[in-house]
Write a protein that binds this DNA or RNA. Sequence first.
DNA 1: AGCACGCCGACT
DNA 2: GTCGGCGTGCTC
Length: 738
Amino acid sequence: MPAAPRIACIALDRPLDRLFDYSIPEDLTLAPGQRVRVPFGRGSTIGVVVELASTSEVAPGRLRAIQEAPEAEPILGPRLLELLQFGARYYHHPLGEALLGALPPALRHGDPLPALTPETLWRMTPAGSQALADGDARGRRQQAVLRALAHPGSTPHDSPALDRATLAAATGLQLAPRELRAFAERGWLEAITPDPKQPPPPNTSDHTLTAEQRAAVDALTPDTGVPLLLEGVTGSGKTEVYLQMAERVLARGRQVLFLIPEIALTPQLSARIQQRFPGQVALLHSGLSEGERLRAWESARQGQRRIVVGTRSALFTPLPDLGLIIVDEEHDSAFKQQDGFRYNARDLAIKRGQLEQAAVVLGSATPTLETLHAATTGRYAHARLATRPDGSQPPAVEAIDTRVHTPDEGLTAPLLDAMQQTLAAGHQCFLLLNRRGFARVLACDACGWVAECPDCDARLTIHAHNPRAVCHLCGHQEPRPQRCPQCGEALAQRGLGTQRLEQALARHYPTTPLIRLDRDSIRHKGALEEALDRIRQLDAAIVVGTQMLAKGHDFPQVGLVGVIDVDQGLFSVDLRATETTLQLIVQAAGRAGRGSGGGRVLLQTGHPDHPLIRGLNAANYPAMVAPLLEERAAAEMPPHGHLALVRVEAGDAETTRRHAERVATHLRNAAAEGLRVLGPAPAPRHRVNRRFREQILLQSTQRGPLHRALTRARHAWQTDDLPRGTRIAIDIDPVSLA
DNA sequence: AGCACGCCGACT
DNA sequence: GTCGGCGTGCTC
């Protein structure tokens, strides 16, 4: 008779690629996925039970006992546990970090699960409606709340009941519970406590779906394990399709996981979902406090909230009745974690869908070549939204030849003319420039010297209100040199960024409202919402920004989109630069010509006759990127080949190189037929913050040999004596080779 | 990763 | 004489 399993194999939050065995105290019953506190070294730490065993390799005398289990139940269910185990294996990352990283920080640190209180919903009373109409509600906040309850987004019917978070999202205000209670005491609002067994019905939409949208909703076939690509041109109404899919799945009693690239950049989307499903949405993103995050997570795990809207890491939220995963803007690189556990939430979402028997929808106007290829070869189902419900057309794309029209401060004469016309017609101009700040560098025109960071491979940049020169990679600052240290000539400022473009535009159009939208300008909380509101309220205006300008916002007034410099993206060496630039152009074009009809997209380029530029066609993205797919096939690059990047980093160039060579040798020894090991080569940014980086690229038409070689080589270099300061990072399916 | 142990330099 | 530098090894 086998002994009872009195040993638990436990994963810990350490970068150690193994489990630790502990004995289970008599009075404790454990299951995989359960959280435990264990003694470790001289302290104690939180771990997750991965499996139970009756014997251990560790001598019985050296086994220590589990201290406690904060919950009696597994906190990660079997399918989520399997997903994370798969992910850790696939991305060659220690299981403990993957597992503990999936928990909210509070649980990782040992806090107990919070008790959930039922969410109060607020509805406007007739008295409140009266107060709004009569102007009795004087305060800005009072008016905002009442108005939100009178017109919740697209449903101007009877007053719906909204929870506090939804009201906050709809008004853009921070609302304390006591403030809402005060409104209730005045008789303007009434509080409703919904029955948890009987969730409130969705606030129905009065959008009638187009035939295409209807077909897309119907294309959702649950339980087949086949992902659905929802390819919809910008403005084609993907969100409404998602919402109706969600309604169907919720009606069958299941939960919905809605992943978006970055909540902060698209506040309207999450607000719209919350308004449609009041009190049922848990919002998960990096802006939450530990406590807020924990409560949102727990409410989803308990099934109290039926919808999770969140960024990348929300993929790992436990959902007992998961029925649908939506990955919106699936092409967005924000779904790929860029350090530590380098998973791609889009790819793991597909895996989770299979494990949980939940439908998976990937939506985009500009799908990645990987997804597009899977859809055209039949591995994924494919639904297209080719038209806009309002009947408007994506604008045509025109090129301005910068060899003929020399740009001054980034602006050519034809672009300035077109802007003039657009503004005169009362429409807006959006100008896209993928470089922040002033991005001016200090250069010597006489000998070519350029001011560089002493610690990085980067040029120092000059910003508007800073008298010093700054490094964008490490933050190093120094006084601006006035003269060239090599030849003594006076230094000139060269280059162009959004801030400088903004200044140049202010000179050209001194009376036109000018708004800049980039990472720097929205740093303050609420700054983005403020800018978006201003853009929507204005008629003629110029908006300057980086790629975030192209991200999913609806601006009805845009008549012209200008791309200041397409060439730097289109003709770059990086594997995906061309693809992401084409995506950016199409997404940007999608901002123009909504509502008011027409609209132009102007690209400034020195290669107007290049096939990619001539082939630009925002209405048919798959046709437009077909040549790229052919290139990828010829080069055995994704999706026709698989990549992994191994980065070696150390404190000086010499050791980094030496150890990279050794890692590469391990990989070559472990490599089987069909695997190419390229490098090591200095990483594109070889030196950052006084550390040096070399990289090795693995390329194979099959995933198998690639993973087998990595597994074997990893064993080899772990037993090899690499010095302490050397760090090796593995990046599977890298989104950028930089 | 943390945290100990451990063996060599400049300091009250 | 000791405080502390970070090289090496371990954590069930």
